[in-house]
Simulated assay, not measured.
Amino acid sequence: MNTIKLLLLAVFATLSFSVKAQDKTESFKVYGNCGMCKKRIETAAKLDGVINAVWDVDTKIMTVAYDESKTNKDTIQKKIASVGHDTEKFRANDKVYEKLPGCCLYERKSATNSNQKNNKY
């Protein structure tokens, strides 16, 4: 009986000291056109620490849930830009963008008129 009490006490103590990861959900704009873009964007966003990543083709809104201790919104957006898709904060490298399939070439803001950072991926 004492063994069971000690075991229960140990389990309770372990559970009370465990720290839950800080999960966060954020949404931001990502430019693209089609189902191929959706697959590329969502795949790029699935970094270590990303729990879920969904891009809506119609609204161009990306929603990501991630563990704040492993990644952040800027890192996710930079990774998406690295595969050719501009985000609200980061502009894809022109050479990477130009290699996208024709159906994926979305209308871009000019680099000089944009407040996006130009990534060198």
Rank of each mutant, 00 (worst) to 15 (best):
A44G: 08
Y31C: 09
G49S: 06
K39H: 12
Y66D: 02
C34D: 11
A53R: 03
D48N: 15
C34H: 07
V50C: 02
Y31G: 05
S27N: 10
T63W: 01
D58W: 11
Y66K: 00
E42H: 01
A44M: 08
F28A: 02
K39T: 10
C37P: 04
W55G: 03
L47I: 08
V30N: 00
V30G: 00
I41P: 01
T63L: 02
A44D: 08
K38S: 10
N33E: 14
C34K: 04
M62E: 14
G35Q: 10
Y31V: 08
I61D: 12
K39F: 09
D58G: 14
G35K: 07
T59A: 08
V57K: 13
M36K: 09
N33G: 03
V57G: 06
I61F: 11
K38R: 13
W55T: 02
S27L: 04
N52V: 08
V64Q: 05
N52H: 14
Y31W: 13
V50N: 01
M36G: 12
G32D: 04
F28G: 02
K29D: 15
L47V: 03
I41L: 07
T59R: 07
K46S: 05
A53T: 04
K46H: 10
C34Y: 09
T63S: 05
D56W: 10
K60A: 09
I51W: 09
